[in-house]
C-alpha cells in the first residue's frame, strides 16, 4: 500500500514537462476531479467529524472539568491531570496494559509471520486461508466468553484435561500472575489469522526474481528469510505493527466480559479504567483526562514506530 503511494508521488510533480495549453486543460480537469473527490469524501468526513474530531475536542475540554454527566461541567484547570499523576490505579493500569501489548503483539506478530511464510511456501489453498481467517470472523465478546468457559477452573475442558494428566489446575482468568497473559493469548488466537493474511499479502508483493536470484546464489531457507523476505516485507510489517500496537493498547471487551479488571487490579487496563471512571463512577472529567493521556501515548508510539521502522519507504525501490 505504501509502495504504490511512493510511486504516485513523483508523477504528480511533473507537469513542468507538459506544454502550456495542456496545463490549462489539466487545471480544468483537476477542478472537476476535485468536485467528485469532495463528493466521495463527504461520507467519510462526516463520520470523522461526528464520531472522532468533535468527540475528541469535547473530550479534551472535559478533561479540564469536573463533570458527572448529570450536572453541567465546571472548569478546574489541570486538577484532573495532577490527581492522575498520583493515582496508583492509573500507573498500574499502564503497567498491565503494557504487559498485554508486549505479550499480544509479540506472540501474534511472530506467529503470524511464521504462518504467512508457511502459506506462501507450501499452499495456495483458499480453504486453508479461510480456516486461518475464521476466528477473526467471530465477535470479540463471544470469543472471550467461549474461552472464559473453556478455561473455567472447575468446569472447563482445559482444566479437566490438565487434571486428567495429573497436572495441577490453572486459574487462567483468576490467577493474578496469569490473567493478563490469558487475555492476551485469547486475542492472539482471534487476530492471528487476520494478521497472517496481511503479512501474506505483503509477501505476495515481493517479486519472484529476488527469490530466484537468492536461490542461484545458494542461499538457504533461513538466509532467504532473513536477507530477502524480512527486509522487503518491512513496510507491511511496520503497518501491521503500528495497527496492532495501537489496537492492543485499547484492549477492553475481553476484559469487560471476563475478569472485569480483577483479580485485584491485575487486568484493569487503561481503557477499562477509563470506562469504569466514566460510566460506573460518573467521573467523566477524570475519565476524559485519562483518555487524553492515552491518546498522547498512542500518538507518540505510532510516530516512534513509523520513524524506527521507516514505514513509508521500501527497499524495493532502492
Amino acid at each position: 500500500m505504501t509502495i504504490t503511494a511512493d510511486k504516485e508521488a513523483p508523477q504528480r510533480d511533473t507537469p513542468r514537462k507538459r506544454s502550456v495549453p495542456k496545463k490549462v486543460k489539466k487545471k480544468a480537469n483537476r477542478d472537476s476531479q476535485l468536485k467528485s473527490a469532495v463528493l466521495f469524501l463527504i461520507p467519510a468526513s462526516i463520520g470523522f467529524i461526528v464520531f472522532f474530531a468533535w468527540p475528541a475536542l469535547r473530550g479534551l475540554y472535559l478533561s479540564f472539568t469536573d463533570y458527572n454527566l448529570l450536572r453541567p461541567p465546571t472548569f478546574i484547570g489541570f486538577d484532573n491531570y495532577v490527581a492522575i499523576s498520583t493515582d496508583p490505579v492509573f500507573w498500574n493500569s499502564l503497567k498491565v496494559t503494557l504487559q498485554y501489548v508486549v505479550i499480544n503483539v509479540g506472540v501474534q506478530t511472530v506467529a503470524a509471520l511464521l504462518l504467512a511464510v508457511l502459506m506462501q511456501r507450501f499452499t495456495r489453498s483458499m480453504v486453508v486461508r479461510g480456516v486461518i481467517m475464521l476466528p477473526y470472523l467471530i465477535a470479540n465478546v463471544i470469543v472471550a466468553l467461549v474461552w472464559f468457559w473453556l478455561c473455567d477452573y472447575n468446569l472447563g475442558i482445559i482444566n479437566a484435561g490438565l487434571d486428567f494428566f495429573g497436572i495441577d489446575k490453572v486459574g487462567f482468568f483468576g490467577n493474578e500472575n496469569i490473567a493478563m497473559g490469558t487475555i492476551a493469548m485469547v486475542n492472539v488466537w482471534r487476530h492471528l489469522g487476520y494478521t497472517a493474511l496481511l503479512l501474506f499479502a505483503g509477501l505476495q508483493a515481493i517479486p519472484k526474481d529476488v527469490y530466484e536470484a537468492a536461490e542461484v546464489d545458494g542461499a538457504g531457507e533461513w538466509r532467504v528469510f532473513r536477507s530477502v523476505t524480512l527486509p522487503l516485507l518491512r513496510p507491511v510489517l511496520a503497518f501491521v505493527l503500528v495497527v496492532t500496537v495501537v489496537g492492543s493498547f485499547q484492549i477492553f471487551d475481553t476484559i469487560a466480559v471476563t475478569t472485569g479488571g480483577g483479580p485485584v487490579d491485575a487486568t484493569r487496563a487503561i481503557n477499562y479504567y477509563i470506562y469504569q471512571r466514566a460510566f460506573e463512577r460518573l467521573d467523566f472529567g477524570y475519565a476524559s483526562a485519562l483518555a487524553v493521556i492515552l491518546m498522547i501515548i498512542l500518538a507518540a508510539i505510532a510516530l516512534l514506530q513509523n520513524k524506527l521502522l521507516r514505514a513509508n519507504e521500501s527497499d524495493l525501490e532502492r
Binding site: Y153, N154, L155, G174
Partner: peptide
C-alpha cells in the same frame, strides 16, 4: 470453599 482463583469463571448457579 473455592479460592478466588478457582471461582473466577462460570457463575455460581451453574457450579
Amino acid at each position: 470453599m473455592p479460592s478466588f482463583e478457582a471461582q473466577t469463571g462460570i457463575g455460581w448457579s451453574d457450579q
